[in-house]
Design a protein around this nucleic acid. Structure first.
Lengths: 194, 194
DNA sequence: GTCTATATCTTGATAGAC
DNA sequence: GTCTATCAAGATATAGAC
């Protein structure tokens, strides 16, 4: 079921290195040669596991999305109120950004989406769709139960949250004193809390 | 004084095409060959105007920042209240995104910042510094004059605005129903308005 | 300023030995 | 599964004629 454990150990390692490179320099910023050097094998061996760069891209996004989905499920079961859930959600991005100012895999790929193969772009779309569904549910529940103000429709608030968090990482890369996703969500919840 | 009019007509045209390409596919997503085809000249002629890709990158960001600076000045003089100013500010991003889902030049370059030459990255940093200074001033004035709630320090609110707007474009590229920067600012001002 | 031609390197990808 | 070797294409960049 888990895409990552479906792969051979070498393929897993390659996908892991590729994910880090996407988060550091983007899909157009690295090559099979970079991966080979990092993993400690030759380009041709990387191609043995992933025939094309698009195949590798799809594997990276699927794996990333799968892990993210697990984390979302975990948040829904362990955190009970919308503010707690949104805080835990922001902490996912915080952990990513705290690691060498890495971007969200799909945030980076969304920027590059016009130069991605259709299969990769589709996986990125799916990631955001998943996040929007989850966030909308959380926000709607919060508004219904009274833990969030009912100032706007839930999907709009959800998209604002998602944009703010992705944007905090994007902008944070070029600011001398970035706030970080967690701090930004705290501010947002200060405005949205009832 | 204007970087764009300091350039020869051909150089201006090249920089203009390069800017569009950055906004569409990113700095790592295009080559001198793409520019040459679009402009209608040969690669070598492009190099005559900009010796290196980094030189071209610097020119693009300087030109973009200069235009943005003019727009900011315009907003400060023509709009008098913080909500009006922030709305006009969001409209700058709205216009960019409405044009074929283009990203902000510096939003895109911030994502790619780890693979940029130092000179280009420095210009991107300057763009964000400029925006933060302007936004912080606007927010602070709004809090002081009572048109915005005093819930947080002005720099934090400013960074949240900037992140939300940049993020709305980033995320909007991969959503079927993106809200757009202007709509998102309306929502934010609904929460922050006093 | 623009061109042709070329140099040099890197890219994604394949063939075939081990 | 990994390797060497190779390919064709594309990348940045330069030299020199017009």
């Amino acid at each position: 079921m888990n895409i990552r454990t479906e792969l051979s150990p070498s393929a897993q390692r390659i996908a892991e290195v590729a994910q880090n490179l996407v988060q550091e320099v983007g899909y157009n910023g690295f090559s099979f040669e970079h991966i080979a050097k990092e993993v400690g094998m030759r380009k041709a061996s990387v191609h043995h596991h992933f025939a094309s760069k698009a195949d590798l891209g799809v594997a990276v996004v699927k794996s990333y999305t799968h892990e993210f989905e697990d984390a979302l499920q975990n948040i829904l079961t362990s955190a009970k109120s919308a503010p707690q859930r949104l805080t835990a959600y922001a902490d996912l991005f915080e952990a990513t950004f705290a690691n060498q100012h890495h971007l969200c895999v799909c945030g980076m790929l969304s920027a590059e989406s016009n130069s991605l193969d259709a299969a990769v772009k589709q996986e990125v779309n799916h990631f955001f769709q998943l996040n929007m569904t989850c966030l909308t549910f959380v926000v709607q529940e919060g508004m219904d139960s009274g833990s969030l103000k009912k100032v706007n429709d839930a999907p709009a608030v959800a998209q604002t949250c998602l944009s703010m968090l992705e944007g905090s990482m994007l902008v944070g890369r070029c600011l001398s004193a970035p706030m970080g996703p967690r701090h930004m969500m705290d501010l947002f919840l200060g405005l949205l809390g009832s």
